[in-house]
Computed example of a mutant assay.
Amino acid sequence: MTPQHKQQNLILDRTQIEQKVKRIAYEIYERNFEEQELVLAGIYPSGHTLAERLAEQLQQISPIKVSLLQVTLNKDMPLQEPVQLQPENISLADKVVVLVDDVLNTGKTLAYTLNAFLPQNPKKVEVATLVDRHHPLYPISSTYTGYSLATTLRERVQVVLQEDEVAAYLL
């Protein structure tokens, strides 16, 4: 545990996160085994890193072509700036899109990102999240959940997905 995390409670370590990523990848494959291609759209920054890890696992276990999409938005004021999708040339028409974020709390972030996907007419949109906190304010639920955790509204969950540290903490 690094010094900055002394006041935090470790809820998932590197091994547990890797196991959960692998399990989510298998679940995505099981639900979408008939697809030729799917798009993992990760919310930048941590959701995109999680999407990259899921893509690696999916490529190891399935023949499905996986495209990665980075979703960037202003999480505090989502209406102030448009949601950006990178790269812009990925077509979502008639494809399965799995929207990936590290923590699902109220569903606000994921709800605002849907506006960027729906005009492109995806076949379906699913949600994958490492930690689901269960404080829904928007009609968004996780299709794939790594870890379900009951928290208070004041508590925060921080997911760290870096080369030297992979962990999830309750703050």
Rank of each mutant, 00 (worst) to 15 (best):
T2F: 05
A150Y: 08
T2W: 13
Q86I: 01
T151R: 01
G146Q: 12
E155S: 09
N121E: 15
Q162E: 15
A51H: 06
S46E: 13
D101V: 10
E18W: 07
A116E: 12
L38T: 11
V96A: 11
L54D: 10
Q8H: 15
T143F: 00
Q84M: 12
R31T: 04
D132W: 02
P82T: 09
E165W: 01
G42I: 12
A93L: 13
F117S: 04
T106N: 02
L104N: 05
S67K: 14
L149Y: 10
L137F: 14
N9D: 12
T152A: 02
L149Q: 09
I43H: 05
A150Q: 15
V127H: 01
Y44S: 00
V125W: 05
L110W: 13
T151E: 07
T109C: 02
P63C: 07
E163T: 04
H134T: 11
L73P: 04
T145C: 10
D132N: 15
R156S: 15
L92Y: 09
K6G: 03
K123C: 00
E126Y: 05
S141T: 11
D101Q: 03
E155G: 14
Q57A: 10
E37D: 12
N115C: 06
I11V: 11
K123D: 08
T152N: 07
D13V: 00
Q16Y: 03
T129L: 06
G146H: 11
Q84F: 08
Q4Y: 14
N121S: 12
